[in-house]
Design a protein around this nucleic acid. Structure first.
Length: 552
RNA sequence: UGGGGCGUGGCCAAGUGGUUAAGGCACCGGGUUUUGAUCCCGGCAUCGGAGGUUCGAAUCCUCCCGCCCCAGCCA
């Protein structure tokens, strides 16, 4: 056991200091997705960071839906998110939280700010507000409504709330500083009118709080001590702190930001993923090519490999792009250690072993995993006719043993866990296509070394022709053929890889897998890791990832 | 040209004035192997640039360069 010390990231350092100074006694974090799409691998890092920080410090983490904008949200998403977080292996504290649970409290806090002249109802429309806001290098100007009496704002706010005011014509704004170099502090919007039913509060509200007016207060209500989010919210922190300082909150949460996870050859933006789904470039949010949690799951990626991968990533302020190969390493590592072995011939080529008795059948009992006795054994039926992969046979007999460790006429190859065989003859159909190989077994070679004079070129996987199951295999390539699909001027859609999915039917898998359970993981030896698809009716396996391939 | 943040090998990343500058991924050699897998050995950087402080700097200071975020009634 090499317990490599995990570096203490900057947030943990803050926590250590807070714990030591007695500022906090119990660490409380939260994972706060907006239910406007499915979770993806980027969220997984955030989930691991937030739940991990809580677990590492004996604290707790809330799952909270930041449902402040009914326009984009849907119950389908909340259910999917709950399922994904659970599947990833995390347990939130007590009940699931919703920003919408705090709408009443938020409203009365808004009234308080108005009454203290720290907020006002503004009648500038969107375009005017933009003009008044100024630019990055020019200060903004005060709204003409900025100094209206509190009583007037209070009354208008109530009218906004009950639906007596048109959408877009009024907002509630915090009165901070229109000349602030931080644009977020230039009288930000606290409430906007949306005459729209909310998935949880129905028609109760005609106004909804903005992210900035809601988030810190949600944290405070829940007793969140360390509100950990991604870098792009850093500029919102002063505003977060302004509300915390100006409201009588039950606790004083603090916000910290770390770099979000970016992976090459894919996109991790809910907006873009939704576009892929809506425009049918993929089959759905859980399409195995998607970087969504549900897509990865259906693809056969394990929850534990996602966790291990995320834990290998730094919690820091650098924003880089992680190589997909790093993720793949953790996927293979977990599957290699835990997936049962099996054989599946993807492009079947019939081989008849002429010296094997026609009706004879043997059953070889072999391990389920080369070094995991606890994974049991499996039985491989063997007979006179078998299938091997077409790629494991070549008519080119000049290929050196080193270059081609597979079957050629006149030479030997080991059938994995079975006999050494020799190929003698090729049989073709009318079109000249090879349809069968006739060969012979070398007797007494099962579980034994090759006799004198026989040297197998290599090992090849196979399946009994008489006793195997037909199946379909889905092979995947990367969804985008450009490392940074969303980098250039052009749309990321232009970089979609048209060959990202290959459906191969007529594959032959060892008999024992005819009733494989969905989401069970297997290594098809010499091919890769596969899992039975959870949505298809027939026997369909999705290729999670191929084996490493070190030969040129 | 405003504000905030960041720059350590191809990628991720430790490092918080004195170490031969951790580790992982990738890659390149070699060994083992009934999976061209796994496993095992070995190789692979002077820290964005330039000055300065210091006996000593990736770590401190100055200037410069580059990248990211902020001008939604999105989050």
């Amino acid at each position: 056991m090499t317990d490599t010390e995990k570096p203490i990231n900057f947030i943990q350092q803050v926590i250590n200091a807070d714990l030591e100074a007695g500022y906090v006694s119990k660490v409380v974090t939260r994972f706060p997705p907006e239910p406007n799409g499915y979770l993806h691998i980027g969220h997984a890092k955030s989930i691991c960071v937030n739940f991990g920080l809580a677990a590492d410090n004996g604290g707790s983490c809330n799952l909270r839906f930041d449902d402040t904008n009914p326009e984009k949200e849907d119950e389908e998403y909340v259910n999917a998110i709950i399922e994904d977080v659970r599947w990833l292996g995390f347990q939130w504290q007590a009940d699931i939280c919703y920003a919408s649970n705090y709408f009443d409290q938020l409203y009365s806090w808004a009234q308080l700010l108005v009454s203290e002249q720290k907020a006002y109802v503004c009648e500038l429309n969107a375009e005017q507000m933009r003009e008044y806001r100024g630019t990055l290098i020019e200060a903004g100007r005060n709204s003409p409504y900025r100094d209206r009496p509190a009583s007037e704002s209070l009354d208008l706010l109530e009218q906004m709330k009950v639906g007596a005011v048109d959408e877009g014509s009024m907002t509630l704004r915090a009165k901070i500083d229109m000349t602030s170099p931080n644009i977020n502090m230039r009288d930000p919007v606290m409430y906007r009118i949306k005459k729209m039913a909310h998935q949880r509060t129905g028609d109760t509200w005609n106004i909804y709080p903005s992210y900035d007016f809601a988030h810190g207060q949600e944290d405070a209500i829940e007793g969140v001590t360390h509100s950990v989010c991604t870098l792009e919210f850093a500029a919102n922190r002063p505003l977060y702190e302004w509300f915390v300082a100006n409201l009588p909150l039950p606790s004083q949460p603090r916000q910290y930001e770390f770099g979000r996870l970016n992976l090459n050859y894919t996109v991790t933006s809910k907006r873009k993923l939704k576009q892929l789904v809506d425009e049918k470039h993929v089959e759905g949010w859980d399409d195995p090519r998607m970087p969504t949690i549900s897509g990865l799951r259906r693809r056969g990626v394990t929850a534990s490999s996602i966790r291990e991968f995320c834990d290998s990533l730094a919690v820091a302020k650098t924003d880089g792009v992680v190589d997909m190969a790093q993720f793949e390493h953790f996927i293979r590592n977990d599957l290699n250690n835990n997936a049962r072995r099996a054989m599946c011939v993807i492009n079947p080529l019939l081989v008849t072993l002429a010296n094997y008795e026609p009706d004879k059948v043997e059953a070889f009992v072999v391990p389920g995993h080369p070094n995991r006795d606890d994974l049991g054994e499996r039985t491989l039926p063997f007979g006179r006719q078998i299938y091997i992969d077409r790629n494991d046979f070549s008519e080119d007999t000049t290929l050196s043993r080193k270059k081609f460790k597979r079957l050629v006429i006149g030479d030997y190859v080991r059938l994995r866990s079975a006999y050494i065989i020799r190929a003698d003859e090729v049989i073709r159909d009318a079109a000249g296509e090879i349809v069968e190989i006739v060969g012979a077994i070398v007797p007494d070679t099962v579980g034994q070394d090759a006799p004198e004079g026989v040297k197998a070129r290599g090992v090849v996987h196979w399946v009994s022709a008489a006793d195997s199951a037909d199946c379909t295999v889905n092979l995947y390539d990367r969804l985008f053929n450009k490392a940074a699909p969303d980098a250039g001027e052009e749309s990321f859609l232009e970089h979609i890889n048209p060959q990202s999915l290959s459906i191969i039917s007529g594959c032959k898998v060892e008999a024992g897998l005819a009733h494989a359970a969905a989401e069970d993981h297997y290594q098809f030896e010499r091919e890769g890791y596969f899992t039975r698809d959870s949505k298809s009716k027939g026997l369909v396996f999705n290729c999670t990832i191929g084996l490493r391939d070190n030969w040129k």
